[in-house]
């Protein structure tokens, strides 16, 4: 049995129905646990005070904002190459979630930045890149909405996702070139001691796991909805033909 079996809508519906409660449960546990741990059981930072605790939302959402796009890119490639409907629908389902993650990262960044840098917004490379990423999400979703025929929409959005990925990377590079900013370097790396102290590091890991699980949960739910709506259309079409 190969992994492509799950590209069959029926098989996907069965498996996801079984997996969904588990993933949802784990997501809730990880998110609630991680956030409570982070918010109430870690010390305040000696420089930043309690504002630092927004890191438990800011960092995971920023990571998911990028990961969601990568997932859409992979799903789009699978659709283009192997033409599995579920793959295209999963990409469609992930887009609004990725966009929301981008928005959360931008807003929590602003809330964090205000006391730290004294400004809600600065044209810092990282911030700017996320704003551009948000625009890419916007265009991608708008294109899905604008096209009636689902296969045409899947094809065109996949091409856009591919080309958009290249240009998003280019933009990231261009923006770095354009302005060296005030955002701190990435807070996470394998070498944790260099970046964030252990007390912050472990709850952060739990929160990241929680956000990943939350993303998977939401994508599964939304993909199931898309499949059901396609099923409805297929049944209607069958009735019209009969």
């Amino acid at each position: 049995m190969s992994i492509w079996e799950y590209a069959n809508p029926k098989k996907f519906m069965q498996t996801s129905a079984w997996a969904l409660p588990w993933v949802t449960g784990l997501a809730v546990v990880a998110l609630v646990g991680g956030l409570i741990w982070g918010f109430f059981f870690t010390p305040d930072d000696y420089k930043q005070g309690s504002t630092v605790k927004i890191i438990y939302i800011h960092v995971p959402s920023a990571m998911m904002a990028i990961n969601a796009w990568v997932m859409m890119l992979v799903a789009s490639l699978i659709w283009i190459i192997r033409r599995h409907h579920v793959s295209a629908l999963a990409a469609k389902a992930a887009a609004p979630i990725g966009m929301t993650m981008t928005l959360i990262a931008l807003f929590t960044g602003a809330i964090w930045g205000q006391p730290m840098w004294g400004t809600w917004w600065a044209w810092d490379p990282r911030l700017t890149s996320f704003l551009i990423l948000f625009l890419f999400y916007l265009g991608y979703i708008a294109l899905w909405e604008a096209i009636d025929d689902p296969d045409t929409a899947a094809d065109l959005t996949s091409v856009l996702c591919l080309v958009g990925s290249v240009f998003a990377l280019l933009s990231r590079y261009a923006v770095n070139f354009w302005n060296q900013g005030l955002h701190q370097e990435a807070s996470l790396s394998m070498d944790a001691e260099e970046n964030v102290a252990d007390v912050f590091w472990y709850p952060l890991l739990v929160c990241i796991a929680g956000f990943v699980l939350l993303f998977v949960t939401l994508v599964l739910i939304r993909t199931r909805t898309e499949i059901r709506s396609r099923r409805l259309k297929a049944l209607e079409a069958r009735e019209r033909m009969a």
Binding site: I132, L135, F136, L138, G139, A142, L143, A146, I147, T152, L156, V159, L160, V163, G164, F167, A168, L170, S171, Y173, A174, V175, F177, W178
Partner: peptide
């Protein structure tokens, strides 16, 4: 991308403008 769409004009701007970012940055710079 938008050739067959009824109200393609606005969507076209939305799709194209983010793609213009690198060109604009390097050009103006």
């Amino acid at each position: 991308l938008t050739v067959g769409l009824k109200r393609g004009g606005l969507l076209l701007s939305l799709l194209v403008l983010p793609l213009y970012v690198p060109t604009l940055i390097f050009g103006a710079e």
